[in-house]
Amino acid sequence: ATVHVKGVTYHFDNPEQAEKFAKRMAKELNGEVHVDGNTWHVD
């Protein structure tokens, strides 16, 4: 799974980790999470 945060890409072997990371980053950055298959975007 892949997480894109403000133009930076993070790779996770575990999709659950990717989801938790994306949601945590969105919270910290006051952003929104969008999911597209195995790819998470934090804007």
Score class of each variant (00 low, 15 high):
G37V: 03
H41R: 13
N38V: 06
G31K: 05
P15I: 12
P15D: 09
R24F: 13
Q17D: 15
M25R: 05
V3H: 00
H4L: 14
A1G: 10
A1S: 09
A1Y: 15
V35Y: 14
T2L: 10
N14R: 08
V5W: 05
T9L: 11
D13M: 09
N14M: 07
A18E: 00
A22V: 03
P15E: 08
T9Y: 10
A26E: 03
V8T: 09
T9P: 06
N38K: 06
G7M: 04
V33G: 02
G7Y: 04
V42T: 02
D36A: 10
H11N: 07
A1D: 04
G7R: 04
Y10L: 04
A1T: 08
G7P: 03
F21A: 03
A18G: 04
E19S: 06
A26Y: 02
V42P: 02
Q17P: 03
D13V: 09
D13E: 12
A22Q: 01
L29A: 04
G37D: 05
A26Q: 04
W40P: 02
V3R: 00
E19V: 05
K20T: 11
V35M: 11
T9D: 06
H4F: 13
Q17S: 12
K23N: 11
H41G: 03
K23L: 14
G7D: 06
D36V: 14
V42E: 01
N30H: 10
V35R: 15
D43E: 14
E28P: 02
T2K: 12
V33K: 02
N38P: 05
F21W: 06
M25S: 04
A22W: 02
F21L: 02
V3K: 00
R24I: 09
A26V: 04
D36L: 12
L29F: 07
H11D: 05
L29Y: 06
K6R: 13
D36Q: 12
R24H: 12
H4E: 08
K23Q: 12
G31Y: 09
H4C: 08
K23D: 06
K23E: 10
F21N: 01
V35C: 08
H34P: 01
G37K: 05
T39R: 13
F21Y: 06
R24S: 09
A22I: 02
A1C: 11
F12W: 03
V35F: 15
D36F: 13
M25N: 03
H41Q: 06
A18N: 00
H41P: 01
N38H: 08
M25K: 07
H34S: 10
F12A: 00
T9H: 06
M25P: 00
V8R: 13
D43H: 15
T2C: 14
M25Q: 05
Y10S: 02
V3E: 00
F21E: 03
A18T: 00
N14Y: 09
K27A: 13
D36G: 04
E16N: 08
V42G: 02
F12P: 00
G31S: 08
Y10N: 01
T39F: 07
E16I: 11
K23M: 14
A22S: 03
N30W: 05
K20W: 10
Q17H: 10
K23T: 09
N14H: 10
E28R: 11
K6D: 14
G7T: 04
H4Y: 14
T39Q: 14
E32D: 11
V42Q: 01
D36K: 12
V42N: 02
A18M: 01
H34L: 07
V33F: 09
K6Y: 12
V8D: 06
T9E: 08
L29I: 10
H4G: 03
A18P: 00
G37T: 03
Q17L: 12
M25A: 06
V33H: 04
